[in-house]
């Protein structure tokens, strides 16, 4: 894996393989972990893959869910109307949301009647291309999608900066920590007490994080 990715924004896995962190938490804890998607978490995909290909074929989201529930989509801040013609690339940001209320919600929604009202920020279809190299992109999830599909992406694995994960873990309450069911860092079982100091030790690196729920 080392040296596989570079990122236009300086985010990436360059020379060093990322640490591998497996967490098992209770369901309440999972609902806290998913909030990280509001700012975004890194996922892997193939450059040139369509939104459908990367989310459904690669990461296991169902086509029905993508078509029926993911009704507001942005690729690099541009509103997407067609998930089969918008393609990911290195360092891009893909944000997914359910239908939103109000006029703005109607205007921004995927292929909605009012989409013409935001034509200056509409994503233009990308030309088809052969599958490219492995890239990292940022996935953001909002509102209902956090709880509905956030756990799926966490369980299949995301990539996060060690510093960001440390800050997140340091902010957590006692009740959250009570939900901890297991911590495995690079194959080594850690206690809760050992975990954060280990994270703090390596603040520059990236972590390949998997979080699964267990009651």
């Amino acid at each position: 894996m080392a040296g596989s990715f570079t990122d236009d924004n300086g985010i990436g896995i360059e020379d060093k393989a990322p640490a591998r962190l497996d967490l098992v938490w209770d369901t309440a804890g999972i609902s806290v972990f998913v909030t990280l998607f509001q700012e975004g978490l890194l996922l892997e995909g193939q450059s040139g893959a369509t939104i459908r290909e990367v989310l459904c074929r690669r990461h296991g989201l169902s086509d029905d869910y993508l078509d029926g529930r993911v009704n507001t989509i942005f690729l690099d801040g541009k509103a997407v109307d067609n998930v089969d013609s918008a393609r990911i690339h290195q360092g891009c940001t893909l944000a997914l949301s359910a239908s939103m209320p109000g006029l703005a919600g109607a205007v921004l929604r995927k292929a909605g009647f009012f989409s013409g009202m935001r034509n200056t920020i509409t994503h233009s279809p990308d030309a088809p291309s052969a599958p490219g190299k492995e890239v990292l992109f940022t996935l953001k999830l909002f509102n209902m999608l956090l709880g509905q599909v956030g756990p799926l992406f966490l369980a299949s694995g995301v990539i996060i900066g060690s510093d960001r994960l440390t800050a997140f873990m340091l902010e957590r309450t006692e009740a959250f920590w009570k939900g901890c069911r297991g911590i495995l860092l690079d194959g080594v079982q850690l206690t809760e007490g050992e975990f954060v100091p280990r994270l703090r030790h390596d603040q520059e690196g990236l972590i390949r994080l998997r979080v699964v729920g267990r009651s």
Partner: peptide
């Protein structure tokens, strides 16, 4: 309807903050 039965009751109108921000608007 998902907006009136889920989005608004769960998060209120402030559900729009992340989305409008993402749109750059």
């Amino acid at each position: 309807h998902p907006v009136t039965s889920q989005g608004l009751p769960l998060f209120g109108t402030n559900v729009l903050t992340n989305v409008i921000n993402e749109a750059g608007g």
